[in-house]
């Protein structure tokens, strides 16, 4: 880039650069004001301790406090549980669905695509409330299982920590699989159908085509959705807040839930909450970096 630019006359270069900057200025100003400035403020806040507005600077006291906090440890563990269990299942399901729905011979393709994408149009709050109603002790799922005689006592879906985590994962799968599928479908449009035709002529099975053509050619998009989903899952909040309130105990609490709780629902410690937010920020950055490295190296 720089070597290329150096060959151009310096005056013209400066002039176009100035115009370019002018064009992107509105966006830059907005990003700086809405994103970067709050980030700096949040970092400064994370260096202060105290309750409510009685804050004083205490260096890294909040960060030193984190490793000693059992609730933080529990929330961190739960968050990674959601990340490790939910993201791979969701992305694989989205990929398989996309490959299936990309088949030109399939009838009612548009209908299926719409149906699978539709949950994305549901607000997270309504979606969580519906799943809460489905899984209560007299909800639809328990009633059906009882009626069929598969169980004799309602399953404590939301009051047992293990079940509750699984229900939350199921809710997230329902809500987000379609969203990722759309990215893959868009990616598949760019793969020439002749590639598949050639593979078929050579006798490749559907599974082989999926593994050897679809997945490698969609790698950049898979990478993109992985980063996006990791980011989203690390910030998981709505489902937990509505369906379990983090319970039983701290069994389903996530980092964002804990941050919200100590900011708004308990004696407010904004500094400590900000410090926790920064740990999420660092985790997102590190995981995204690793994923990019892994994604690139296989090319």
């Amino acid at each position: 880039m720089t070597t290329h630019a150096a060959r151009k006359p310096a005056g013209l270069e400066r002039k176009t650069a100035r115009k370019g900057w002018l064009f992107i200025m509105p966006a830059v100003i907005l990003i700086v004001m809405m994103s970067f400035y709050p980030m700096v403020e949040a970092f400064l806040l994370s260096l202060q301790t105290g309750t409510g507005n009685n804050l004083t600077y205490k260096g890294f006291a909040n960060y030193e406090r984190l490793p000693k906090d059992n609730t933080y440890a529990a929330a961190l563990g739960n968050t990674f549980f959601y990340l490790i269990v939910q993201v791979p299942i969701m992305l694989l399901a989205a990929l398989v669905l996309a490959a299936m729905l990309n088949d030109r011979r399939l009838m009612f393709r548009g209908f299926y695509r719409t149906m699978i994408f539709l949950p994305v149009a549901t607000s997270l709050v309504s979606c969580s409330m519906i799943f809460l109603q489905l899984f209560t002790s007299n909800g639809l799922i328990n009633s059906l299982l009882l009626n069929w005689g598969w169980i004799t006592e309602p399953i404590p879906f939301l009051t047992n920590a293990v079940y509750a985590r699984i229900v939350i994962v199921v809710t997230m799968l329902w809500r987000w699989t379609g969203y990722n599928m759309v990215f893959y479908l868009a990616g598949l449009q760019n793969i020439d159908s002749q590639v598949y035709e050639a593979a078929r002529i050579d006798g490749a099975s559907a599974a082989q085509q999926f593994r050897k053509i679809t997945v490698p050619l969609l790698r950049p998009i898979i990478l993109f959705t992985t980063v996006l989903s990791t980011n989203g899952t690390l910030q998981l909040f709505d489902e937990v807040r509505i369906m379990t309130e983090g319970g039983p105990g701290t069994g389903t609490a996530t980092l964002s839930f804990y941050i919200y709780r100590i900011t708004f629902e308990r004696v407010p410690r904004f500094g400590y909450a900000a410090a926790m937010s920064f740990t999420i920020f660092v985790m997102v950055a590190v995981l995204a970096f690793i994923q990019m490295k892994v994604g690139e190296s296989k090319q």
């Binding site: 039983p248 105990g249 701290t250 629902e265 308990r266 004696v267």
Partner: peptide, 19 residues
């Protein structure tokens, strides 16, 4: 006190642990 809810949270966690 000021920390009624925090104390209650921790006892609820303790009960869950006993369960």
């Amino acid at each position: 006190g000021v920390y009624n809810y925090e104390a209650r949270d921790e006892i609820v966690n303790a009960i869950e642990a006993v369960f």
